[in-house]
Amino acid sequence: MYIKQLENGQVRYTQKYVDKKGKTQKVQITLPSKTKVMQARAKSYWKKKFY
């Protein structure tokens, strides 16, 4: 997981994965802060997206 602080104060979480066809895909989610709760929320979003 990559974390980047944006100019407007929000945080962009980026995750790369390999899909079923073997291509590398990238999923991004923007959340308001960089706390552990927000990181967990981003991970739960990705689990729903990937599986």
Rank of each mutant, 00 (worst) to 15 (best):
M1N: 05
M1C: 07
Y2S: 12
Y2I: 00
I3F: 06
Q5S: 11
Q5M: 02
L6A: 06
L6H: 10
E7L: 03
N8G: 04
N8P: 00
Q10N: 08
Q10S: 06
V11I: 08
V11G: 05
V11L: 03
Y13F: 08
Y13G: 00
Y13V: 01
Y13E: 00
T14N: 05
T14S: 04
T14G: 01
T14Q: 12
K16L: 04
K16D: 14
K16C: 09
Y17K: 06
Y17D: 12
V18L: 07
V18I: 07
V18N: 02
K20T: 06
K20Q: 14
K21Q: 09
G22W: 11
G22I: 05
G22Y: 10
G22E: 04
K23H: 14
K23N: 13
K23I: 09
K23T: 04
T24I: 12
T24W: 04
Q25N: 10
K26S: 11
V27P: 00
V27W: 00
V27N: 01
V27E: 02
I29N: 03
L31I: 03
L31K: 08
L31S: 06
P32Q: 13
S33L: 08
K34H: 13
K34I: 08
T35N: 05
T35Q: 00
T35A: 01
K36T: 09
V37T: 08
M38R: 02
Q39M: 07
Q39N: 06
Q39T: 00
Q39P: 00
Q39K: 06
A40T: 10
A40W: 00
A40R: 11
A40E: 14
R41T: 11
R41D: 13
R41S: 14
R41A: 12
R41K: 14
A42E: 09
K43T: 13
K43E: 14
K43V: 12
S44K: 10
S44V: 15
Y45V: 07
Y45P: 03
Y45D: 03
W46K: 01
W46V: 11
W46T: 02
K48T: 14
K48C: 15
K48S: 15
K48V: 12
K48D: 15
K49F: 13
F50Y: 11
F50I: 15
F50N: 08
Y51N: 13
Y51F: 09
Y51H: 10
Y51R: 10
